[in-house]
C-alpha cells in the first residue's frame, strides 16, 4: 500500500476567485503580509500493490483526464509513502 498525492492548481495566469476571497479576508482578520493566495485541490489516492512506473503512468492518465481540467489547471503527482514502492 502506498499513497499517491495529486495536487491540482489553477494555472498561474488563470483568475482564482476563491484564492482572492481568502486573500481579501486576511487583513480583516489581522493577518498581514500575505500578498497573494492561490487555492487548489489535493487528492490522496491509496494505491493497491506497488507504485511502479506503470501505476504512476495510470495515475498520470487519470489525473490528466479526470482530476484536473488541463485547459485551466496544472497538476503534480508525488508518492507519499514509499515503503513498498519501487524506487
Amino acid at each position: 500500500m502506498a499513497r499517491v498525492v495529486v495536487d491540482v492548481m489553477l494555472k498561474p495566469e488563470i483568475l482564482d476567485p476563491q484564492g482572492q476571497a481568502v486573500q481579501r479576508a486576511l487583513p480583516r482578520l489581522g493577518f498581514d503580509g500575505i500578498s497573494d493566495v492561490r487555492q487548489g485541490k489535493r487528492f490522496e489516492l491509496e494505491v493497491d500493490g506497488p507504485v511502479d512506473e506503470a501505476a504512476l503512468a495510470r495515475i498520470h492518465d487519470l489525473a490528466e483526464s479526470f482530476l484536473a481540467n488541463t485547459v485551466i489547471e496544472d497538476f503534480t503527482i508525488r508518492v507519499e509513502e514509499v515503503a513498498e514502492a519501487v524506487k
Binding site: 489553477l10 494555472k11 498561474p12 495566469e13 488563470i14 483568475l15 482564482d16 476567485p17 482572492q20 476571497a21 485547459v71 485551466i72 496544472d74
Partner: peptide
C-alpha cells in the same frame, strides 16, 4: 512568462 498564453477567461460572478 508564468506559462504559455492565451489563457481561458474565468468569471467571478460575485465580483
Amino acid at each position: 512568462k508564468p506559462s504559455k498564453r492565451p489563457a481561458v477567461q474565468v468569471g467571478d460572478p460575485f465580483q
